[in-house]
């Protein structure tokens, strides 16, 4: 018996946890980590669905998500380094020049 519904519920829980992390934590590195959690949760949902329908498509999509996450993380962390170099702080609330 494939735990389809439970799998989706698990994915939903992990997703909202990641969302909470994005909204709560002010440290940029933690924000990026929380985004990774969200991406992973979405991937989990795809895998569950792919297993349910006995197709490799879910895994293929997960692969794409993985590639995307890799690219995003590399650029994002490079930006984090640059940010720290410029502002000497990792507080997202302090980096709000794009206001108004």
């Amino acid at each position: 018996m494939l735990p389809v519904r439970e799998g989706f519920v698990l994915a939903a829980i992990l997703f909202t946890l990641g969302l909470t992390g994005v909204l709560v934590r002010r440290n940029v590195v933690f924000v990026l980590m929380s985004i990774e959690v969200m991406l992973n949760a979405a991937g989990l949902a795809f895998i569950v669905a792919g297993a349910r329908w006995r197709q490799p498509d879910g895994q293929v999509v997960f692969l794409f998500i993985l590639a995307m996450a890799a690219a995003e993380v590399s650029v994002g962390l490079a930006l984090v380094l640059e940010l720290y170099h410029q502002y000497k702080s990792l507080d997202t609330d302090a980096i709000s020049r794009m206001r108004g």
């Binding site: 969302l19 994005v22 909204l23 709560v24 002010r26 924000v31 997202t92 609330d93 980096i95 709000s96 020049r97 794009m98 206001r99 108004g100």
Partner: peptide
């Protein structure tokens, strides 16, 4: 609403 704060905008998206 344009505060420039990341969390604020993410919260609105959520």
């Amino acid at each position: 609403t344009e505060t420039g704060k990341l969390r604020w905008h993410a919260a609105w998206i959520a």
